[in-house]
Design a protein around this nucleic acid. Structure first.
Lengths: 202, 202
DNA sequence: AACATAAACCGGAACTGATTCCGTTTGCAA
DNA sequence: TTGCAAACGGAATCAGTTCCGGTTTATGTT
């Protein structure tokens, strides 16, 4: 996955080069079409060719813009993703700053659980389109955040590895497998994570 | 994945129907050819068409026998898998029965880590060939075993969910991502799991 | 204000690899 | 010997991804 990256706008000044008008127009068309397909046919209907056709665009354009299937899926949940990131980075406690590290860890894992369950279909597709797709998107952000909190809550521990370990149970494939049909619910998953966190709390 | 299942042989008596001679011959040819390809070209070279050609068999046969790419990969690691299962089910403690539940949990997770790292390439392929492939193979065995131990070590806890949570960090994609290039080692992963287990030990 | 030009972008044909289908062949047991 | 379920092989299908010759656009120039 290596979608086109555009310069970030800082203080109204854009670096190198701005996105071309036709490109911007197409991006909107593509995302709109894709969202429409998901809404009507579910994620199963979301094939690259379908999206391209529905958007009135060539598949090449689609790949240029989003890199691959996984990239397209992540783009579709981008908005909600930004909200979530904002919430744990600068939102109100206990998710955001201001609460104790332990409380924030707990709040973060609960919130991530909810968010994942909420968009399970798209996340499942995004994470499994390519073998390591999960570690290309928002994962690094979650990991950095959780690492920091763990380091605070538990000085001396291997925060880097522990963060992975706590994020792992929230991988879309596992949740999808357990939440469908079997009696496992989001609440049970959260409770289980709380149980694991006991090691930190005490 | 839904490879053909053959009757288990119990006390020399085979149930329903035995595998046909030509089928057995082909299975050996396929596995031999596949192992050869992996040895010479790595797992990347393991395409279904390649294997079929090398084995002198049609692709249809390959699918009839192993269900899909994932099934073929699991078949290739089956021997080692049986050893591992035997070790934690009836081998010497602390991995096998005879030790305390907490010790067995720890031993199990360490052993599983080693085993996974050892065959990381094939496991990565096996687990990511299809979105939920991981939960079709040996996973249920691990989960049942770990659930039992957790229930013993921690009566009242949600062993079912906790078992998933402890197995999740050992998913092939995560390990592959961390062990390649970044300073994470199998030992660090094990130490991290031990840290999580502190909640049980105390 | 029209123009020239290179960088970006476009579309869709072509390619790749997994999986399915189905007419044909084979092994086994009656 | 014969019947048929099981197995076979490989063509056909399907979806993701790559390629590349042909446009469009942003920008500097006249």
């Amino acid at each position: 996955m290596q979608a086109v990256q555009y310069p970030v706008i800082v203080n109204g000044i854009t670096s190198p080069r701005r996105e071309r008008a036709d490109a911007a127009r197409n991006r909107v068309k593509i995302l709109t079409a894709a969202a429409g397909i998901v809404a009507t046919h579910g994620v199963e209907g979301l094939s690259m060719a379908e999206v391209a056709t529905a958007a009135g665009v060539g598949v090449g354009t689609l790949y240029r813009r989003f890199g691959d299937r996984s990239g397209l899926a992540y783009a579709l949940i981008d908005e909600r993703e930004r909200e979530f990131q904002a919430a744990f980075i600068e939102g109100p406690p206990p998710l955001g700053p201001g609460a104790e590290a332990t409380a924030r860890i707990r709040a973060f894992l609960h919130a991530l659980t909810d968010r994942t369950v909420e968009q399970l279909d798209l996340l499942l597709m995004a994470e499994t389109a390519a073998p390591l797709a999960r570690f290309g998107g928002a994962y690094d952000g979650y990991h950095a955040h959780l690492s920091m909190l763990i380091a605070q809550a538990r000085p001396g521990a291997d925060a880097y590895v522990l963060a992975d370990a706590l994020l792992a149970p929230l991988a879309a494939p596992l949740l999808a497998h357990r939440l469908r049909g079997r009696g496992v619910t989001a609440e049970r998953v959260k409770a289980g994570l709380d149980d694991l966190l006991a090691a930190f709390t005490t």
